[in-house]
């Protein structure tokens, strides 16, 4: 499971994780549940239907299949699979019951979405598991607790019955050793705060945290000493003036002070990033860094990130 605050790149990280597993020769299913078609955009393919479709092949013979789960389609599939309700299912859909149930009761909706992951994880093909791994591009940190706590959400609505049993089985899988939740963050105040809150919430629910992925990391060309000087606006102007001249750049007073001010802005930001990194490290979890891809994410960049994740 990969979660993170909106804008931190959790879909990209989920895709890179799937690719990195495929690189190791594994058959991987990459699932999205938010109806955003984020995977199709990322892999530059037409919108994904409710069908598992191969979207990438790893050099080690592994493969990545992608699936966009839709709660309504999942409900109809579920009804058909367990109750053989082809026609009745359609009748439900026709009177608006499917729409109603999946909209008004988000807990039921989440059971259907996680239920599909549960099914894919356990599915057998040719005498072995159909997938070695399932990677879920999960809802954002703000919603991840209730989303994975399906049992609780459903308990309020259905005390007994098949949906309740299904929820119990899913919860069992989510809490077991096969599941890990990875949280993607940037070194900014809001995403870090949400990550800390989510870790606490998920652990209270007995769910297992995998790693914290710190995304879009930029390394400073300045050493720590210079960073400290830059923050205090005490970079040696004489050295900068001499250096600029040596490089053939007009070293006007204004140019020197502009460059020093830019270095200060940068140093202030690095300082904030470090504070945020300390807060992440204080969690005592495994932390993985992914570098910033300056020109945007394309196919090649995705494979690079996958490689970074592996190492």
């Amino acid at each position: 499971m990969v979660t993170g605050k909106g804008g931190t790149g959790k879909t990209t990280v989920a895709a890179a994780m799937a690719l990195s597993l495929a690189d190791q020769g594994k058959r991987v299913l990459l699932v999205e549940v938010e109806g955003r078609q984020g995977l199709a955009q990322l892999f530059d393919v037409p919108p994904l239907p409710y069908v598992e479709r191969k979207i990438a092949v790893g050099p080690g013979g592994g493969e990545v299949f992608a699936l966009a789960v839709d709660a309504e389609a999942a409900l109809l599939e579920y009804l058909d699979m367990f109750y053989h309700l082809g026609r009745a299912g359609k009748a439900l859909d026709k009177v608006g019951a499917v729409d109603f149930v999946t909209t008004i009761a988000p807990g039921l909706r989440d059971v259907l979405l996680t239920g599909k992951v549960y099914e894919a994880t356990r599915r057998k093909a040719h005498g072995r598991l159909a997938y070695d791994a399932v990677v879920l591009d999960a809802p954002p940190t703000g919603r991840i607790g209730p989303f994975l706590n399906v049992n609780h959400e459903v308990a309020g609505l259905a005390k007994v019955g098949p949906i309740r049993n299904q929820a119990d089985a899913i919860m069992g899988m989510l809490r077991s050793d096969v599941t890990r939740i990875h949280l993607v963050t940037l070194l900014e105040e809001m995403p870090v705060q949400e990550t800390l809150d989510a870790v606490e919430q998920l652990e209270t629910l007995d769910l297992r945290i995998g790693s914290i992925v710190v995304n879009m990391v930029r390394h400073s060309p300045l050493d720590d000493e210079s960073l400290a000087l830059a923050v205090k606006e005490k970079l040696p102007t004489a050295e900068l003036t001499k250096g600029l001249r040596a490089a053939g750049i007009s070293a006007s007073k204004q140019m020197v002070s502009t460059l020093a001010a830019e270095a200060r802005d940068h140093a202030v930001r690095i300082g904030l990033e470090r504070e945020n990194r300390d807060r992440i490290d204080a969690l005592g979890k495994e932390v993985t860094e992914l570098g910033l891809v300056p020109d945007g994410i394309d196919h090649g960049a995705l494979f690079d990130l996958a490689e970074d994740l592996r190492s």
Partner: peptide, 20 residues
């Protein structure tokens, strides 16, 4: 300019500021 400074082993600080 930053490259030139790095190549000639001159002011690493100026090179870094230019990179920024």
């Amino acid at each position: 300019a930053a490259e030139k400074l790095t190549d000639s082993d001159k002011s690493a600080l100026t090179a870094a500021v230019l990179l920024l």
